[in-house]
Amino acid sequence: MITEPHKRIPARGLLAWRISGTLHSVFPFVFSGGAIAAAILFNWPIWVIGASLMFYSAYAYLVIMTFPSLKWKRWRYEVRENEIELKYGLFVIKRTLVPMIRVQHVDTRQGPILRKYRLATVTISTAATVHEIPALDMDEAEELRFFISQLARSAENDV
């Protein structure tokens, strides 16, 4: 059997995901807060407050704690001479092989949160599919991009 990919997302990536998870939970926060305020103002039954609190805390816990941890724990990647291998997934584990000679181009993308932690998202495009490594060290991302463009230049384009 092929050796499993072993490289992991840097631990800073987990932190960045938690922050973006926090931002994601703003909307349910406003929603539950509104429901609680309305319940107090209009004398709605008490369970509305309880349900809202439950809903928000469950949502926030999943989005800030559980999902990022699981995602980080599962994510593996490896860039070899001839191919890129990815392994990820929360509930369904997916392993993908992308041969170097099939790679058309590599993009790096960086939002404000990732930038703060010197991370970048790397997107690898083939003629048919797009693959993503969600958080890589910036230097490593740059290196990867350079590496792949080097390889792409030498490989014959036979699409």
Binding site: I93, K94, R95, T96, V98, R102, T126, A128, D158
Partner: peptide, 12 residues
């Protein structure tokens, strides 16, 4: 050589 990428998926 025409396959652009190949994936394996496993659920629980």
């Amino acid at each position: 050589n025409r396959i652009q990428s190949l994936s394996v998926k496993e659920s629980y």
